[in-house]
């Protein structure tokens, strides 16, 4: 009897592992959480896109729930998500931009053309702040709560469905 049970154990273990690998390997490998989830927004010091004399730091992101959007003039998906970001700003949500690997002229021209939903834009021409945030390409969007803790991360293009289905519920949750 025990022998039969032992022999049964091997195929059961095999099936278990096969199922585990089948499920995990068919998952989207890009759909992983940011390493910064539930951590403080990294300390930084930078100028703003509009004003090269104004210094800003991480205190910019405390006080109220803020969506931090990493964008650049060179990034086509950033253009496409601008209407969605403008609609989020219209709902009274505070947005802060990180102008990523860009120049002041091109960044400003982008905002003039596609609209400016941002309360302020952090200028990050070398991608240093992006690196601290683990940004691997624009656009990316972080939700930072009133204490300055990162609570949600959206990688890539924000579609109108993402606004309704993900960003608005997350903002409501952390407000």
């Amino acid at each position: 009897m025990t022998r039969r049970l032992l022999l049964l154990l091997l195929p059961v273990m095999f099936l278990g592992l096969a199922l585990f690998f089948y499920v995990r390997l068919s998952e989207d490998p890009t759909g992983r959480d940011s390493a910064l989830m539930a951590r403080d927004f990294p300390a930084f010091e930078a100028t703003t896109l509009k004003d090269d004399q104004r210094r800003v730091d991480q205190s910019l992101l405390t006080g109220e729930v803020t969506l931090v959007n990493v964008w650049g003039e060179w990034c086509p998906a950033c253009r496409q998500e601008m209407p969605q970001l403008l609609s989020l700003a219209d709902r009274g949500i505070r947005l802060v931009g990180i102008n990523y690997r860009d120049t002041r002229e091109k960044g400003q021209a982008f905002l003039d053309e596609f609209g400016d939903p941002f309360a302020i834009n952090i200028f990050d021409p070398e991608g240093e702040l992006g690196f601290e945030l683990g940004v691997i390409g624009a656009p990316e969007t972080f939700l930072v709560d009133a204490e300055g803790v990162i609570r949600y991360h959206h990688k890539g293009y924000v579609s109108p469905e993402d606004v309704q289905g993900r960003l608005l519920p997350e903002v409501a949750k952390w407000r």
């Binding site: 992983r32 959480d33 390493a35 945030l133 683990g134 691997i136």
Partner: peptide, 8 residues
């Protein structure tokens, strides 16, 4: 690196 980009 792991602090910024995760165990991945």
């Amino acid at each position: 690196m792991v602090q910024r980009f995760g165990d991945y």
